[in-house]
Design a protein around this nucleic acid. Structure first.
Lengths: 159, 159
DNA sequence: CTTGACCTTCTATTCGACTGGAAGGTGTAA
DNA sequence: TTACACCTTCCAGTCGAATAGAAGGTCAAG
């Protein structure tokens, strides 16, 4: 695989910035590239593919650290399978949690929006002051604090 | 509403750290609390509720800035209606976008996991080396680089 | 009156994933 | 030769959401 492009070309082909590419090298997501006599980094198609992989993995929500581990495991042909599988499971769980919350959230938001819009409509056209807040929210007692009824197990830090 | 707890108590009741509580005050998510003669912050049930609201809103993906705006608009009873309605619409749209992406992502993750697990199973029990990577991935051509077929509209920075 | 828990303010640091800019070398075309 | 794009290294800064720690004040129990 011959190294035939400079960093700018690699950047153009992959959509990453040259800064990001150098940064990935620093983090060992990319191997140290060949250099020209004058010190320019030279890259090959392999690097394009590696960056494309990185992009996909990023989009799947893996951190650069995760990605580096996967890539390095893969390189070394140690057994990344189990590791990767566990990582995937973990990600799936995270995604499911977020999805669950987000759906409940959406529902709540939609309800709120609907109520607000209705309250806004019921106002005389010349009303200069806000109906949602003046009526809507006050009518509900504890202002915005009552907006979101949203149960959940919670974890958070101590002092 | 009498202010009858110090910051540590408020922290205990809400699960936020005292540091975080002071930080929220700085960002004006919390009003300036009453103080004892000696300068200790004193809080009331209202603050507990406000922090609970903040927690919910945080979990709903609002930034602290968003949350501050909502809280302050609500407090001032200036005419936040239209503004709030717009905010709500904007959030709804964001949430829908995220939901859409996240569902696609989940599907992709699940597929990947399933394939990986199957490949892992098909290996001889004594195989010391990784099936996903060695076969799965190698069979698919370009190592891990082919793992994730995941189309997507992309945006990213230039150099 | 001292210990210890709790509080105050202040400034600094963390994390992840970069980006920005300075100062200077390289390579090519006019 | 000069302009210009592109490359190099190195150091600093950004963002959001806090956390860490230093130096010191307060308050109740023993």
């Amino acid at each position: 695989m011959e190294s035939n492009m400079k960093i700018g070309e690699l950047a153009k082909r992959t959509g990453f910035s040259t800064k990001a590419i150098r940064y990935y090298e620093l983090l060992r997501l990319l191997p140290e590239p060949d250099r020209t006599e004058s010190g320019y980094r030279m890259y090959s198609q392999k690097d394009v593919e590696r960056l494309e992989f990185i992009e996909k993995a990023k989009r799947l929500g893996f951190s650069l650290d995760d990605i580096r581990d996967i890539l390095i495991l893969n390189e070394q042909q140690e057994q990344p399978c189990v590791h990767v599988l566990a990582l995937l499971d973990q990600k799936l769980k995270q995604v499911d949690d977020v999805l669950r919350d987000l759906k409940a959230f959406r529902k709540e938001l939609a309800r709120l929006r609907k109520e607000s819009a209705e309250q806004l409509e019921r106002l005389p056209a010349d009303a200069a002051i806000c109906g949602i807040v003046e009526r809507g929210v006050h009518a509900r007692g504890e202002a915005a604090l009552a907006w979101l009824e949203f149960r959940q197990p919670g974890k958070r830090g101590r002092d």
